[in-house]
């Protein structure tokens, strides 16, 4: 999955699940859109669906500091990389 595809998917999730239209890539989601801890949990479930694999408890905890769409994309890219490395081993 390319960075562009991830961005597109995340924006779709934000529109569909959180009624947030076209958020800025570096907008603070909490301050700008009142995106809260409940939303974050829902987002992790959506990310698991997107990846087709479960996130570990540790990976979920790491996501709690995320504030922007760009950071979400970074996070997903990192998870994809970890999965890929594990598969190659």
């Amino acid at each position: 999955m390319t960075r562009q595809e991830i961005e597109r998917e995340i924006k779709n999730i934000f529109q569909r699940e959180f009624e947030i239209e076209n958020p800025g890539m570096d907008d603070d989601l909490r301050e700008t859109y009142e995106f809260d801890s409940i939303d974050a949990i829902e987002l992790l479930l959506e990310i698991e669906k997107l990846l087709g694999s479960e996130l570990t408890q540790e990976e979920k905890k790491q996501a709690m500091d995320i504030r922007t769409i760009n950071q979400i994309c970074d996070y997903i890219e990192r998870i994809i990389q970890i999965r890929k490395s594990s598969a190659e081993k």
């Binding site: 409940i38 949990i41 829902e42 479930l45 698991e48 479960e54």
Partner: peptide, 11 residues
Amino acid sequence: DKASYQVIGAV
């Protein structure tokens, strides 16, 4: 299966 249980939302 686990995936269908996960339909239960956090809220």
